[in-house]
Design a binder for these strands. Structure first.
Lengths: 152, 152
DNA sequence: GTGATATAGTTCAATAATGAAACTGTATCA
DNA sequence: TGATACAGTTTCATTATTGAACTATATCAC
């Protein structure tokens, strides 16, 4: 790939990413049920995927400090969506879990997001959509690997 | 496209987007010169692209309220990167522009981001990268159109 | 065993982004 | 000229975030 082409691709990628992210952010913000912020939804979604997890996992996953997680989780506990439960063996560890209300909330949000994305993905041919996702996943993997390497 | 395939694509897209955005965010945060936040960089970049612009343009572009822009611009003015200049004819309007330092800062950031993206895009064949970008741009257009329609 | 050290999570203070509502000044229009 | 529209700011409350100090608990080396 010659330098000029690369430069153009970078420019186009920057623009497209910025635009898609901005749109997604606005759409999510507007359609997210009941004053859930996007960060809060991310935390709920992660806990759901793990059933049980601790603050440190979340901090690693969200790429923020543990004190940021404490703040978000406290708000979710106040809303009755998440519970805290100390571990029996190692009392330093506090397990986080979704309350029944929390589970219901995640299901609602997932459905709303699914409907929205289905609308967009529906615009594309299956072949184009598949190719796109595959490249996107490769990019995600390359970036994650790079990030991991940088942390060492 | 059948429902099952669609559901899988949505799941994969959600994951990939989340992962790429998180990585980009961390990488930008760490490599961005001199305590510039990503929002601040977005504002600088937009002003650069327009030479002159006002708060309202920026609010529209960033999809936030005008008071959020006032706050960000004030911080950038304090840092000496942006200037404010009232319009001669319509004194309600205040033009924003980059100071020489602001221009230098944007150039530095663009170079840093370009180097980073070049590293990632370099992993792909030209054909794959081109196809990806094209689909991404289509997606951006569809989303922007939808958003525009929703605002009406 | 006991003291040093590591770990999990919280608290606190500061900075930033944001929305909403009230407000200031200016322009426009009937 | 008076009502209205518009551009931008101010103020206030909420949320997210970092980083440092801190608490409580576990582990490890001697």
């Amino acid at each position: 790939m010659d330098g000029n082409m690369l430069e153009q691709l970078i420019e186009r990628y920057e623009m497209a990413t910025f635009s898609v992210n901005r749109s997604l952010h606005v759409i999510l913000r507007d359609r997210m049920p009941a004053q859930l912020t996007i960060e809060q939804y991310g935390v709920l979604r992660y806990i759901e995927s793990r059933q049980l997890c601790h603050s440190s996992d979340l901090a690693e996953f969200m790429c923020v400090g543990k004190s940021a997680i404490t703040a978000i989780v406290t708000r979710l506990v106040d809303k009755g969506l998440v519970g805290r439960k100390p571990d029996d063996r190692d009392r330093r560890i506090i397990w986080l879990y979704l309350t029944p209300e929390g589970k219901r909330m995640v299901a609602d949000c997932k459905a709303a997001i699914g409907r929205m994305l289905a609308g967009y993905i529906g615009y594309f041919e299956e072949k184009e959509a598949l190719g796109f996702i595959e490249t996107y996943e490769k990019l995600a993997a390359v970036m994650a690997e790079d990030e991991r390497r940088n942390r060492e």
